[in-house]
Design a protein around this nucleic acid. Structure first.
Lengths: 200, 200
DNA sequence: ATCATATATATGATATTGCATATATGTGTT
DNA sequence: AACACATATATGCAATATCATATATATGAT
């Protein structure tokens, strides 16, 4: 469901083709919403069927025709209504946490490898966020005041990614440190929980 | 895929029925892996077909027969192998962030409502974590040393939930504060990002 | 020369998910 | 008396999601 509205959101900024939408998703919202290429084309078909978007076919010399989609008035209405609705809360799925939940069945080396690989992944994600912040900052300076406000949403979600990413990294680093100096114990972890939650 | 192995994980502790598995999921791993009741029964069927579990039918007076599933030797092997494998990284789906990404189309009240509702949800989640920590702590004291190690995994994932939950709450509280004193701006947010990522 | 990548849209097949519903009965609540 | 909730398993169906593949060509890399 959200995919359709995320597409409407992007089209409310400017008309795009399915191909460009895929790139846009990958560049901007990938860390909290990834979209499958086939899914985008299917969703565009449904949105057109429902009258929320319309497209113009643009012929090209050597490549397939572009279908440039633009949002309709009823599309804007639907988008704005959806944005204000309470969000769905889809099931969280964290395979790594499932594995760690059964940590007592893992040997020390495998346990460490899992954490280390995740740490590497998070660090590259954080590096990507830093780049993204720099790009946004530069872009911001080139825009006039009215256009700058369009960057507010992206900046909000970027902040989310950065803050949560940093917390996630601390958690991983803490676990690895505890694991390496053999202080990884239930009591130590429960103390961490109490500390975090601010209970004495 | 992970559902099947999560089930194997629980069955590696002790034999359970599908009904009990559903309760177990809801009580222990719900915040990072929620399981559908129908899905559990279907997964049990597949695991039995693959020889990873077997069940014993236990007749009951007034209720349907219980089917008590236990893990087989090949099930344990498969579980241990899966645990050490690099985890899949399923697509993250955060409808709230999608909505916030298009924040410039939201009026101030709706924007605030979204954040406030999420904050309420997070706070009750954090309260649940505090309870869970207390329960685990009490349980820990009643167990002998060998059994205590089985709580390590649950303590690890609980720590994850608590630390990330607290970070998420800070993010929400910060946004609400900025929103209320009209300091919610792209430049302020980008500064937050730079601060979090530790770049001067 | 060959291979990968980019541009551009689309379908088929499968996998997974979630939701509703069916069956059967005891207990507790309003 | 009616209704919700707990116990217990299971199927049907619709909605999504994911993966592979098809078509066509240009450009850049090895």
């Amino acid at each position: 469901m959200s995919l359709r509205f995320a597409i409407l959101g992007f089209l409310s900024v400017r008309p795009l083709t399915g191909y460009e939408l895929k790139q846009t998703f990958d560049r901007s919202v990938r860390h909290f919403w990834s979209a499958d290429q086939a899914g985008i084309y299917r969703a565009l078909g449904e949105l057109a069927r429902d009258g929320f978007v319309q497209f113009e076919r643009v012929a090209q010399a050597t490549r397939p025709d572009r279908k440039v989609y633009e949002i309709t008035e009823s599309g804007v209405t639907a988008l704005v209504a959806w944005l204000a609705e309470p969000p769905e809360t889809p099931a969280r799925r964290e395979p790594l946490l499932v594995k760690l939940f059964f940590a007592s069945r893992l040997n020390a080396a495998s346990f460490r490898d899992l954490l280390q690989a995740e740490l590497t992944a998070v660090e590259s994600e954080l590096a990507a966020f830093a780049d993204y912040a720099a790009v946004m900052s530069a872009r911001f300076d080139t825009l006039d005041v009215s256009a700058q406000s369009a960057l507010l949403g992206p900046a909000i979600t970027l902040t989310n990614g950065a803050l949560l990413g940093v917390a996630y990294r601390s958690w991983l680093v803490g676990l690895l440190a505890r694991h390496d100096d053999v202080s990884l114990s239930v009591t130590a972890l429960l103390d961490d929980v109490r500390n975090a939650l601010g209970n004495a």
